[in-house]
Amino acid sequence: MDIPITPGTFSTGLPYLAFGSGEPLVYLSGFTMTHGAPPPGPQRRRATALVAPFVAAGYQVFWTNRRPGMRVGTTMGEVATEHAEALRDRFAGPVPVLGHATGGSIALQLAVDHPGAVDRLVLASTAYALGPVGRRFHRELIAAAERGRSGMHKAAPAITRNPLLQRLIAVPLWLAGRMDRPEDPSDVKAMLLAEDAFDVRDRLAAVTAPTLLVCGGRDHMWPPEMFHETAAGIPGARLTCYPKRGHNLLAAPEFSTDVLAFLGSR
């Protein structure tokens, strides 16, 4: 499938790639080592593969990252406000928002603080706050970035509980991190610290958009109860769990099928 791709920047400085044409669907990316749109090459091909099912269904998918130049000390509330202003300036009304991992944290903060910006909400691999494994991973990523190194191999415990498998997958994770290593780690540090302080557990009832939360049974960034507590706290939210999937569940065929069914339901 040959998908037209249009790069752009929202009014508040958020970079995006617009894939295809049709009704808008805003996709807030998971964690990235740099605050920019995926460049041509492997990163863009991966992004294209993730959004392809939604483009085929008639959506124009706005793959969105955080604003470059984020200052350390920025709060998740400030990040959400940047997104709300960007969406209001770009679109005529509320739009469906799909957020994965870090993007899911932003999407949830957005829906809590600015409910009028979100038409339908899909939260993938995220919860009302970071889990303990996620917090530890963030601390290790920050320390590695400040030394100019890749810390992505520290994500292995979030992928598997098996010590042998952790050692086996650490090498490809480390290599992947080196390919995407930023020259200036300040954006990474700012976003990680903002997400570390993120916690909307007591405000979940403020979400007014119909919500689907999707998680993997093998995603160890959060204990399973945090996914259930998040869904239970959002009025009318649905929770879908794939027992054999992990953190990166967006490529799973059942994910796009379930999300499209949710987006099309009224």
Rank of each mutant, 00 (worst) to 15 (best):
I5L: 14
F10S: 05
T12N: 07
T12H: 02
L17Q: 08
F19A: 09
L25A: 06
Y27E: 08
G30Q: 14
M33T: 13
A37V: 02
P40W: 12
P40H: 13
R45T: 13
F54I: 12
A57Q: 08
A57G: 07
G58K: 07
Y59G: 05
R71D: 13
T74M: 03
E78G: 10
A84P: 06
A86P: 08
L87I: 13
L87Q: 07
V97T: 04
L98H: 05
H100V: 13
T102D: 12
G104H: 04
L108V: 03
D119G: 14
R120K: 04
L123G: 00
A124M: 08
E140V: 12
I142Q: 08
E146W: 04
R147M: 10
R149S: 11
R161N: 08
N162I: 05
L164P: 00
P185T: 12
D187E: 11
A190S: 14
L193N: 10
L204A: 02
V207R: 04
A209T: 15
L213W: 03
V214K: 07
D219Q: 10
H220F: 15
M221I: 06
M221C: 08
P224G: 09
E225I: 09
A231M: 07
G236A: 01
G236L: 01
A237Q: 10
P243Q: 10
A251D: 15
A251R: 14
A252M: 10
E254V: 04
L263M: 09
